[in-house]
């Protein structure tokens, strides 16, 4: 009975079983966000694309979905950046170099980098949104000639909340990436823009047919940013977003991440606006 053999083979592995992984670097980026560099068991390499996520386990404390913020072109490790926002992430923040966590994944669909070849990119990040986008930006940097112009628009609450501040300088220098930042509230040293991120978009020079806009931020941000991008005539399927949802399995089973009939963990977290438009009213980012 061949079926049974196949079945038994399948049962030997469980998609619920995390891999032993070691934190090889850990540092606070702001007073709320911590950066982790993680090496997987036996130098296993995770085959992932920018925009995908992993389930991170700390036994006894549970498991949570975390965006990968390194690029597949960064070999030998994955990076995660985590905000302290609950009992699991609070525990994760207590861990440091040498500590062990469990990793499952990668899960979901990432940014459609293959479709973006040869195109200009406008990357819009609000707050923590820069975390999954860092994966994309590093990928662009390592494959710079495959893409047209790249501009990053970044918004955060105050200059202190700015993530990857040092790195952005490197992105600008090494990869001819244009970078524009705005804060809600400035401090005396701040010389950049003050105000909403939506105000930066009208000033951006966009050739809509060959431009992909990639937007990641808090739920409230999307509809305003998307409205501005639509004014620039960027086609629906070239406006790309990544959505956050509660997740327990990553396998399209547990039900928590559903938007109407769609499991975000499997069909997302990355969607284009054409897909978003099809939701009848359960997608906060669109409504």
């Amino acid at each position: 009975m061949l079926d049974r053999e196949i079945l038994l083979e399948k049962m030997k592995t469980s998609p619920y079983r995390p891999m032993r992984s070691k934190i090889i670097e850990a540092r606070m980026l702001t007073d709320k966000e911590k950066f982790f560099r993680i090496e997987l068991e036996d130098n296993t390499r995770l085959s992932y694309g920018p925009g995908q996520f992993v389930m991170v386990s700390i036994f006894g404390f549970g498991e949570a979905p975390i965006s990968i913020c390194s690029s597949p072109t960064d070999k030998g490790y994955i990076d995660l950046t985590v905000r302290n926002a609950g009992s699991f992430t609070n525990k994760l923040h207590q861990l440091g170099e040498g500590d062990i966590v469990g990793i499952r994944g990668p899960f979901g669909k990432g940014f459609p980098v293959d479709n973006m070849f040869g195109c200009d990119l406008v990357i819009v990040a609000g707050g923590l949104g820069i975390v999954p986008l860092r994966s994309l930006i590093r990928y662009l940097m390592h494959n710079r000639n495959d893409f047209g112009s790249v501009q990053i628009l970044l918004g955060c609450k105050t200059p202190k909340d700015l993530l990857f501040g040092q790195e952005t300088k490197e992105w600008m220098r090494r990869a001819e990436i244009k970078f524009n930042c705005t804060v809600d509230r400035a401090d005396p040293d701040w010389k950049g823009n003050v105000g909403l991120i939506t105000h930066l978009i009208p000033g951006v020079d966009i050739n809509p047919t060959r431009t992909y806009a990639v937007v990641v931020g808090p739920p409230i941000m999307y509809k305003f940013v998307i409205a501005e991008l639509l004014k620039k005539h960027i086609p629906d399927h070239q406006i790309i977003v990544s959505l956050e949802r509660r997740m327990r399995c990553g396998l399209g089973k547990c039900g928590h991440c559903q938007i109407e009939g769609v499991y975000v963990c499997q069909s997302g977290p990355v969607f284009d606006y054409a897909q978003l438009k099809k939701f009848r009213g359960e997608c906060h980012e669109k409504n």
């Binding site: 949570a64 905000r83 926002a85 609950g86 699991f88 992430t89 808090p218 739920p219 956050e244 949802r245 509660r246 039900g255 928590h256 559903q258 938007i259 359960e282 906060h284």
Partner: peptide
């Protein structure tokens, strides 16, 4: 709490 994320947003 079924569709609530750690940040507090309740999606349903």
């Amino acid at each position: 709490d079924f569709a609530k994320v750690a940040g507090g947003e309740d999606f349903r």
